[in-house]
Structures are given as C-alpha cells and as structure tokens.
C-alpha cells in the first residue's frame, strides 16, 4: 500500500483537465447557442440593427418589458427592458447607449416600483455572459467589492452555463419573435380562482420584498446615475410605477416598501427637474383581465396601458409648454 497519494492526485489532475476541456466546449456552446438566441440578445440585435431616432426608449425590468408595447405608444419607440434587470444593470446599459449613441433618444421610460431598490436585485445579475456586454465586471470588482464583480467576470468567461441548464433546454426551441423588443403575454391571471390569485400575489410579493432592504444604497445610486446621464445628454426621463393587480397591491401593502425609500427617491427626483414621475400602480386594480400574472400586464393590458402612458406623457409635455 502506498504511503502517499501521488497516483490519486495524478488521476484527479487528469480528470480536472478533461473537465476543464469539456467545460470550455460547453461554455462555447452556451455562448453561441443559448445567449445569442436569448430574449436579451435578440432585443439587442433589433435595437442596434437600426439607426432611426426614437421618441421613447423603455428600460428596466419585467414590469417594463411586459408592460409597454412600443407600437401602441403613438410615436417611434423601442422596448429595451429585460427580465430581472435592476437599476445597477440599467445604469451600465444606459451609460453605453448615451455614450455611443447608436440611436438618438428623446425620452427614456424607467420603472419605479416597490421592489425597484430592494437589495436582492443588486446581486441578481443573472445571465452574466450577456451583461458582460455592458458591465465592466473588473471595474465593479474594484469599486464595489461587495458586488462580486470578479466572480461574475470568471463566471461570464468560463462557466456562463452554471445553473442555467433550463435556458439551454429552452434554446433548443425556436426563438420567440419580438416586436421592437416586445412580446405580448396571454391573459392568464383572471382565469385563476380567487384563492389562487391571492396565493400567487403573496408569493410574488414575498420574492420581491420578503428579504427586506427596500432602499439599497447601490441601487439608489444607480438610479441617481441614470437620471444624471439623462440630464447630461438632454434626454427626458419618465419614471413610471407600473400597474399591478389588486391582489398583488394588497400583498405589497403589508411591506410598505415605498415609505422606506420615498424620501431619498424624492430628493433624487427633485435634483432632476425634467424628470416626470407617473404613478399607475392602482389604475387596473379592478380589471383582472389586464394581467398575465399578479404583477405583469397581459397583451390587452399592455396595449391599453401603452396608449394611456403615451397620452399622459404627451399631455404633460403640452402642459409644460403652456
């Protein structure tokens, strides 16, 4: 019997090399087949394929992505929001857009919901490979060590597939078509029983706010950064509280997240006088058919809401002119 584990360590090393080779191959497959066919990359491709100026550019998370149909805003528009996007990501994305100016932009629409500054969103930079296009992870690592920039840098470049097997399975299907970055969702929420609607709404609110930290300083700083970028480049910013179902609204009320961040957000908004804040949170409280789930608008909901949003912005502009 050997005293030392030379042979064992040799085998482990050999296996590790084979593992790394396979991992590199999988990473390439992931980047080429999954990331490039994903909703984010498809949206990017559509956005950068044209150079025409835009009256409205929608950015933010799934509330904005599912909530605004650009063709219903009544002007040239593009929905550049992405699922799971927090203000930290929005800031980096907006920074690149205003610096490189692939398209001229008049107004940017951003979300301001109860969970917009919830701490969990700062860490939730899923899809690290895609976000590497916008976020300099190494700079993040230097400026905000707590944001795990180095881990994300390594993940994006070596193990992007990590814990994302479900996306790989989806990528085998045909990519879903987007219309100026938008894809309508079916009205499913109102078909559920009342108890199920409440259950779903409570669960969603728990995901958004259950972990506390409603006024994360990093996210508030990123929000301030977005408004300053708009101001510096002469772009008007419209901040929108998106419509949610009554059930979700009731669940939100138990957390009172807005009261936690209100003062700080008010200060930020006052420092950008051209910014317009529109609160539509309760506008469809009694219309379940407007929702695909507790906090996302359905096809019908996004159509009606986009009309409403476009008209409201135009009216406010007219009022300002007067």
């Amino acid at each position: 019997m050997a005293m030392k584990p030379h042979a064992y360590l040799g085998r482990c090393l050999a296996f590790f090399v084979v593992f790394l080779l396979c991992s590199t191959m999988l990473q390439q497959i992931y980047v080429r087949l999954v990331v490039s066919r994903g909703t984010n990359a498809t949206t990017d491709a559509q956005f950068y394929s044209e150079a025409s100026p835009l009256t409205f550019l929608v950015m933010g998370d799934s509330h904005a992505k599912d909530g605004v149909d650009p063709s219903e805003l009544g002007a040239s528009a593009f929905n550049f929001a992405s699922y799971g996007e927090g203000y930290f990501q929005t800031y980096w994305k907006l920074k690149r857009i205003v610096e490189e100016q692939p398209r001229q932009i008049e107004t940017i629409i951003l979300p301001l919901d109860d969970h917009s500054f919830a701490s969990y969103r700062r860490y939730r930079i899923a899809d690290t490979v895609y976000w590497q296009r916008y976020i300099d992870y190494l700079a993040v690592s230097r400026d905000h060590p707590e944001l795990e920039g180095m881990t994300k840098f390594l993940t994006a470049n070596l193990f992007g597939y990590f814990a994302d097997g479900r996306s790989m399975a989806k990528a085998l299907r045909k990519p879903e078509p987007l219309r100026s970055g938008f894809k309508p969702r079916p009205e499913a929420f109102w078909k559920l029983s009342e108890s199920r609607r409440n259950l779903d709404a409570t669960a969603r609110a728990r995901i958004h706010l259950g972990r506390g930290g409603f006024a994360d300083p990093v996210l508030l700083e990123a929000f301030r950064g977005c408004l300053e970028l708009g101001k510096a480049h002469g772009i008007r910013i419209v901040v929108v509280a998106f419509p949610v179902s009554r059930e979700y609204g009731d669940a939100l009320a138990t957390y009172s997240a807005r009261s936690v961040y209100r003062d700080e957000v008010d200060r930020i908004l006052r420092s950008s006088p051209l910014t317009l804040f529109l609160d539509f949170q309760q506008v469809y409280f009694d219309r379940g058919e407007m929702f695909a789930d507790p906090d996302h608008l359905s096809a019908q909901g996004s159509t009606e809401f986009s009309h409403l949003l476009g008209n409201t912005i135009r009216q406010s502009e007219a009022a300002n002119v007067k």
Binding site: F15, C22, F159, Y161, F162, A163, G165
Partner: peptide, 18 residues
C-alpha cells in the same frame, strides 16, 4: 466511467441549486 462522472458533474452544474 469518466463519461458518467462528467455527465453527473455537468448535470449538477447545469441544473443544480447553488
């Protein structure tokens, strides 16, 4: 054997909860 180990490791990496 190595193929089985690799398949299992990648299954865990792709679908596991971390």
């Amino acid at each position: 054997r190595w193929l089985i180990y690799l398949a299992l490791i990648f299954l865990v990496l792709l679908l596991g909860r971390f």
